[in-house]
Amino acid sequence: MSPPTTPLLKLNNGVEMPALGLGVFQSPPEETVPAVETALKDGYRLIDTAAAYKNETEVGEGIRRSGVDRADVFVTTKLWLSDYGYDSALRAFDTSLANLGLAYLDLYLLHQPAPLDQEQWVAAYKAAEKLLAEGRVRAIGVSNHTPELLRTLMDHTDVVPAVNQVELHPYFIQRELRAVHDELGIVTQSWSPIGGITRYWPQAPNGGRSALQEPVVTELAAKYGKTAAQVVLRWHIEHGLCAIPKSVKPHRIAENLDVFDFTLTPHEVASIDALDTRLRSGPDPNTRRVG
């Protein structure tokens, strides 16, 4: 049986990005290579990493071992706060590219806003603009930016971010941010899309609670003969989002991709939307500082 075909989302510069990919946050280096190799062989075509994850080298090795053509894989990495600034950002990009063993990147993101060090934050994005103009990266964007922080950055730069990768799951649906993204032509990418952060993040306001145990989700899973996680990932797809669930377990990696043979009705999507608490579980982006 051939691997499933993942829908593509068109970015604001015309580049196409798969609507579902593999994230490798907190994936130990020794488990990252087989996870990436397995995912690509299963049919994934988007891999998301970051300099701060300390596994870029293993992501690159997984891509090479998979046998999938580099041109068919959409690779994202991110610039960490300690490398913000113009020249330091360019050097950090070169390091990431070398670690990955790639000639170019598909998407380069600023990992966090740095409103307390605005000059270096803006300079880092201007460095990303240079990389884009030179063709060393196909698209640029940001992560963890609120509407206010997005507008601040855009007031000082030229290229509208193609993507904003943010915490987004049934307990934190980011309705207002998604509306701003739609207005500006920015694709919303969901990290912790199944809501795992609400269980493992010590400061999570609803720590220990899981959207996968909510009756509305489990009932839909039973209706469609799917797992709760598949229902939640399908909810992201119905909203036109890009989801990047993380796993190093082969059966979970395969399961997370198997969401393109059913659909949720608008009423069912709305019923999952109703789980929204409007409470962020991850760090507050308004308090980040370079370093």
Rank of each mutant, 00 (worst) to 15 (best):
P3E: 04
T6C: 07
L8A: 13
L9R: 04
K10E: 06
G14I: 01
Q26F: 14
I47H: 11
I47C: 04
T49S: 11
E58W: 08
V59Q: 01
R65C: 03
S66I: 06
T76E: 12
K78N: 03
Y86K: 03
A89C: 00
A92Y: 13
D94N: 10
T95F: 06
L110T: 02
H111F: 10
A124C: 15
K126A: 04
K130N: 00
A139H: 05
A139N: 13
E148F: 08
R151K: 14
R151N: 15
D155R: 08
D155F: 00
V160Q: 04
V163A: 08
N164G: 09
N164S: 09
L168C: 15
I173D: 14
E176Q: 15
L184W: 02
L184V: 04
W191Q: 04
S192M: 06
R199T: 13
W201E: 14
A211H: 12
A211S: 15
P215Y: 05
V216M: 08
K223W: 08
K223R: 14
L233N: 12
E238R: 02
H239L: 07
C242P: 14
V248I: 14
V259C: 09
T265Y: 06
P266F: 05
P266T: 10
A270E: 11
D273I: 07
D276P: 06
T287V: 11
R288Y: 15
